[in-house]
């Protein structure tokens, strides 16, 4: 009660103005995406016309048509299979490694952590050739095994960094107490410590899915008709027959962007740690 009266007393003037400014900037940044989303719901004949149409009766025709193309749904299924598959494996193995780094600090821990991080800092185009040849050699091209193995490594650096950060924040006393009471190492790792790093697990799961979901170049070069994901689908589908099919781009783009918007809304507090590969934690 006291708080509400206090709030009411605050000067509304400049704060209101700043609030308006912040909202205005947010909307301005979202505008291009909003334009694409609105395009997806336009009747087909008013998408590629010269004065753009601003008022229209929304229709689902574009989206249903884009989905009715042979491989559209496949792209989504492929993306889901390889991103969830690889990230799940990555988090499991990264947890083991992060636990080892955090608790036993084997020789070369810092150097390994450094190498892991640097793999994410190399331009993708630099590495695509050796992977391409290696995949041809090992007959892994256009296979889920190959892609999942690749994306597992793609997701490991971030997962290890973030989980080690969280594990370092949990007192070794828990481990020691567990040992004294005769718990097995596995019991301590999975039943005592694991539940305490849940935020780290959630963050690395969500953001690795996001990164893998967004990855284009490797999927394009290492995948094939059986494993192409959504970004590749957008790229190849958009240029079918020379001219870009804008209705297709807008519809698939919308289906692609909307889940991302939901993810940012739901996991906003993990956004920072996600986009700094687990190296920075803080509040936003």
């Amino acid at each position: 009660m006291a708080e509400t009266t206090f709030k009411a007393k605050r000067k509304p003037g400049p704060i209101r103005f700043a609030t308006l400014g912040a909202w205005g900037i947010s909307l301005l940044f979202f505008l291009p995406v909003a334009w694409i989303i609105s395009t997806a719901f336009k009747p087909k004949e008013s998408i590629v016309v010269s004065p753009p149409v601003f008022f229209f009766k929304p229709t689902f025709n574009n989206i249903t048509e884009a989905l009715s193309f042979d491989n559209t749904l496949d792209y989504f299924i492929h993306s889901i299979v390889y991103s969830f598959g690889s990230v799940t494996i990555a988090i499991l193995v990264s947890y083991l490694a992060a636990y080892s780094f955090s608790r036993y600090k084997p020789a070369g821990t810092d150097f390994l952590m450094f190498l892991l991080l640097s793999t994410r800092f190399v331009p993708a185009a630099a590495f695509v050739v050796p992977y391409f040849q290696l995949f041809n050699l090992l007959k892994l091209k256009d296979s889920y095994i190959g892609l999942i193995a690749f994306y597992t490594m793609f997701s490991i650096p971030f997962s290890v960094w973030i989980l080690k950060g969280f594990l370092d924040g949990i007192s070794q006393r828990y481990d020691e107490t567990g040992l004294v009471y005769g718990a097995s190492r596995w019991h301590i790792m999975f039943k005592v410590i694991l539940p305490q790093v849940k935020p780290g697990l959630v963050a690395s799961f969500v953001f690795n899915i996001l990164f893998v979901w967004n990855e284009f170049l490797f999927n394009f070069q290492l995948g094939g008709a059986k494993t192409f994901g959504v970004p590749v689908g957008l790229f190849t589908g958009s240029t079918k027959g020379g001219a870009i099919d804008w209705a297709y781009v807008a519809s698939i783009g919308t289906l692609y962007v909307l889940p991302l918007v939901v993810v940012i809304y739901a996991f906003q507090k993990y956004l920072l740690v996600g986009l700094t590969f687990g190296t920075v934690r803080g509040e936003v």
Binding site: I25, S26, L27, F29, F30, P32, V33, L210, W213, N214, E215, F216, P231, L234, F235, G253, Y256, V257, L260, V261, V263, I264, Y265, Q268, L271, L275
Partner: peptide, 13 residues
């Protein structure tokens, strides 16, 4: 959320 959207959309899109 609206403001942060541009950075999580894949560059292709």
């Amino acid at each position: 959320t609206l403001f942060f959207t541009p950075m999580v959309v894949t560059p292709i899109a």
